[in-house]
Design a protein around this nucleic acid. Structure first.
Length: 587
RNA sequence: CGGGGCGUAGCACAGCCUGGUAGUGCGCUCGGUUUGGGACCGAGAGGUCGGAGGUUCGAAUCCUCUCGCCCCGACCA
């Protein structure tokens, strides 16, 4: 392409709306323009980049036997009602009505669609396994789109679905996908980690998240440098030193059972840890009231944790099988337990709740297991209880891992590792779905022994825009983007320093043709601009190699500039094509 | 949905508090001088001041409502 005719609207200054580096550079380099919150256009440069990424996705999917589909973006409500997700998913789904008034939605993912096809067409285990995929637009009405292409309302996603006759088959399909994902991200030049993650509303038994390590990311990952354990904080666990509670009475007066004592003005864990009470935070029970939607019904839930631990709401939701949980309001808490938030506790909480006709569920973190002689609120303002032995004194309905892992805690998998917590961006997610969709939607096959069985499914997604974002976050400098060679919009840019100089112009044009014939994507900067402007622009849009056609043409030389290394060298003009070809096409 | 911020020329911003001819830099057009890391001089074009209503002789500026965008939180496959 000739830059003089090509649309690359670069900006000298950072747009005011952009916060993260990738967003600023995508706008400044003329890759994208915003239409609305979370909705962007790919400009020609952006489209080239996206096509490169999609080509890699295609190649790697095809390599593991994937078959590409083109699936509808507009869906009738029926299929989503069948799977149960029409009601399970809230405002994240774009919903609309057609002219007849029938409910429709824009697809946020396509499990329902492929399952519909599978149940109509696949009859026998002999037709399995199948690996289907699509690379298409998805729609999600994000409550808060942000950070350029990081969190979008419409975006391109590669989604793959596998269908197997048994769980062993699913395991194989899952591993195939995981290996393909490793190749994809490696080819795209992204440094990533594979982490254990919560399956959330996708359902299913096991999931791996692919995370690009970057401070611009929104996810927190705990990982062990020693054994390689890595998990999203919504799933991560750690080994805690065991606390031995001494035997014998707890109260100062020698009483053993739970004993109420006055604590005027005490509202927090810290308050109770201070003089005159001096109850260490790890001897206290933190009590949090939530309303969680379970099986479609909002229910009050009391979450109990050690005083020095933090609740992780995703783990909490997972433990309850809840799709939505929110902290209770102050008035709700008072109505439910008869005290304000600073004085709550599990002892007698169920009875208190029954008085106001509520069926309170109590979930306790595993860190409280076997603990005794603990202190907690008395469900009576300005009073606490001490000497609490949890199993004896509190009606716990469910024990679960609810706490947030912190940096520096011991690795759960190995003996010596210490966890570090870092930020990352989710760029891919693979799920073992199992039979969630095949059962609800009736996708069965006849097995070898002649019985009907639901197809075992998996689902595997990659966000194209997120790959682009991650690549920039991980590869840029003060001058602009540095594209990985695999996804760069152009392999090389030929910069003619002075377009009015006929000699330079001719040499540049010839080089442009020669490089194209060598199979490279070439951008010719033939604009009537000063050299400095062209150099700055070339750096900004991040083409890996620049060939400068300038003064040195007198010695039959051109200059080869390496964007990554920021170094240039003189190369004889009759050697430059081969040189660039070798460089650009090497991985 | 809660909290905060911002909407003035293509971009970045000033002007608003204290109402009275709408400005600056970059970019753009034309002419000239320049020509290897975002040149210089001169002359220009370009703005319903997000929108609606109100107060006022007079509103970018004050008031009310509204729309949009960004950030934090909540939420999120």
């Amino acid at each position: 392409m000739r830059w003089s005719q090509y649309f690359i609207p670069t900006l000298r200054e950072d747009p005011a709306d952009a916060e993260v580096v990738s967003h600023k550079l995508l706008l400044r380099a003329g890759v994208i323009r915003q239409l609305s919150a979370g909705i962007y256009s790919f400009l020609p440069l952006g489209q080239r980049i996206a096509l490169k990424v999609m080509q890699i996705l295609r190649e790697e999917m095809n390599r593991i036997g994937g078959q590409e589909f083109y699936l509808p973006a507009l869906h009738p409500a029926e299929v989503w009602q069948e799977s149960g997700r029409w009601s399970a998913i809230g405002d994240d789904m774009f919903r609309l009505k057609d002219r007849k008034g029938a409910d429709m939605c824009l697809g946020m993912t396509h499990e329902e669609i492929v399952t519909t096809i599978a149940r109509n067409e696949i009859r026998s285990y002999k037709q399995l396994p199948q690996v289907w995929y699509q690379i298409q637009m998805k729609f999600r009405d994000e409550p808060r789109p942000r950070s350029g292409l990081m969190r979008l309302r419409t975006f391109i996603m590669k989604d793959a679905y596998t269908f197997d006759v048994d769980w062993e088959g699913l395991d194989r399909s899952f591993i195939d996908q995981r290996e393909a994902y490793k190749r994809i991200f490696t080819r795209c030049g992204i440094r990533f980690s594979i982490v254990e993650a919560s399956s959330g509303s996708m359902g299913g038994s096991e999931s791996n998240e692919f995370v690009a390590r970057t401070d611009a990311g929104e996810d927190l990952i705990a990982s062990c440098p020693n054994c390689g354990y890595a998990a999203n904080l919504e799933k991560a666990t750690s080994r805690l030193p065991k606390i031995e509670d001494d035997a014998g009475p707890d109260g100062p007066d020698g009483s053993d059972g739970p004993e109420e004592f006055p604590t005027p003005g005490v509202k927090t864990i810290e308050d109770l840890a201070r003089t005159p009470y001096l109850v260490a935070a790890n001897r206290q029970i933190k009590s949090l009231v939530y309303f969680a939607t379970i099986d479609g019904e909002p229910r009050p839930v009391l979450a109990l944790l050690r005083g020095d631990h933090q609740l992780h709401e995703v783990k909490f939701g997972d433990a309850l099988g809840s799709t939505a949980a929110r902290p209770a309001h102050a008035e709700e808490i008072r109505e439910l337990l008869g005290a304000s938030a600073g004085s709550l506790g599990g002892v007698g909480a169920k009875a208190n709740a029954r008085k106001s006709n509520h069926n309170l569920l109590i979930v306790a973190d595993l860190g409280l297991k076997d603990r005794r002689k603990m202190a907690t609120g008395a469900n009576k303002d300005d009073h606490h209880i001490r000497g609490v032995e949890i199993e004896r004194d509190i009606e716990v309905d469910k024990w679960a891992d609810l706490r947030t892992v912190e940096s520096g805690e011991a690795c759960p998998r190995c003996d010596t590792g210490v966890l570090e917590v870092f930020k990352g961006m989710e760029i891919g997610h693979i799920f073992k779905l199992g039979t969630k969709y095949s059962e609800s939607m009736g996708a069965n096959v006849l097995t070898a022994d002649g019985k009907q069985a639901p197809i075992i499914m998996g689902s595997y997604g990659i966000g194209v825009e997120r790959i682009i974002t991650a690549a920039i976050e991980q590869s840029h400098d003060a001058d602009g983007i540095i594209w990985p060679k695999s996804i760069t919009p152009f392999d090389v840019i030929v910069t003619i320093t002075n377009i009015k100089d006929e000699k330079l112009r001719e040499a540049g044009e010839q080089l442009y043709k020669d490089l194209q014939h060598a199979g490279l994507d070439v951008l010719l900067d033939d604009r009537d601009e000063r050299a400095g402007v062209k150099f700055k622009d070339a750096d900004l849009i991040g083409i890996p190699y620049r060939v400068t056609v300038g003064k040195k043409i007198a010695d039959s030389n051109v200059e080869l500039f390496d964007r990554q290394a920021k170094q240039s060298e003189n190369v004889a003009i009759n050697e430059i094509v081969e040189r660039v070809q070798k460089l650009a096409l090497s991985a």
